[in-house]
Design a protein around this nucleic acid. Sequence first.
DNA 1: AAGTCGGGGCT
DNA 2: AGCCCAGACTT
Length: 352
Amino acid sequence: MKTRLQGAAVEVDRIRSRLLAWYARTARDLPWRRSKNPYRVWVSEIMLQQTQVDRVKEYFARFLAAFPDVESLAAAREDSVLRLWEGLGYYRRARQLHAAARALVAEHGGRFPRTAEGLRALPGIGRYTANAIASIAFDAAEPIVEANSRRVLARLAGYGRPLDGPAGDEPAGDLPDRLVARRLVPRTAPGRFNQALMDLGAIVCTPARPRCSACPLAGCCAALRARRVDAIPAKAVPRTVKKIRETAVVLRHGDRVLVERRGPGAWWEGLWDFPCAVGGARGQPQGKKLGVVRYTVTQHAVARTVRVRRVVRRGAATVARRWVTVAGLADLAMTAPGRRIARLLKKPAAIC
DNA sequence: AAGTCGGGGCT
DNA sequence: AGCCCAGACTT
């Protein structure tokens, strides 16, 4: 069976059999692959969104130990879910995972929808994740296109234009990689095939210096035939980075410091951080400069000046403002720069 | 269709 | 310093 796409012939049967034979020998042993339990597959897929496999492994183990099933996750406090997620990034994923667990228990009796369409109705589950869960846990023949498989498919088809960035004149739902994926995914064990495609992208068909000589699909690869593997997929135009300065103030009262929880719409919603202001903190006593914490958030490069100031009185605690000891900060889900400031406070220089 | 959301590891 | 990563959601 052959299908022609963008001028590239993709040999479906040959690709399937060679890829699966390779996967049988080479598959990565990943913690979430040891069963087809939809809860485990779901948690792993949410964690893996825009996040590398090696970093997810330990988070996955800790999370499953704390919340082994959808009922325990639904019963948890959002704070404790965020604490386990701290450092993984994209915290909206954690809040939506928690919300979806509650919806599953409240409206589906704790059972997962078995179709991609049903799964997509849950918060945090988009096209990729719905298809991944449906194919891996429920054997639905849904294609998945993510960073790895997308690169493999673009090279197989010899697709020379950028796949992301400015979308150009193609409808997003019908990029050639999606069409190829739909043709390739078999009825039998579609989840295994999908994971094989991702493993090939992760192990052999890598972004830089792919190991084409070890590739089971080298004989089917249009990019290799055209000697354009290094040029495919084409790079998207990089976005310009915007520089931002801000000031954080650590207010100390006795052995306690003031922290605030990020509100709706703010970066790191739901996480705790020290009071922060854009630019310099004008009109306020400055306090002692403790250092500068630099971090980047997508296209923003932020330099956060950190100051420490002792106060005589402390305001009342609210749901979003707390006075906690430095040791007590360990129990809060903090932003990445907030956590770095917390570490600075343990040093002698933080005494004022 | 474009913009926004993080953060770590590697080169 | 830049590149890369098992994307989703809002506007």
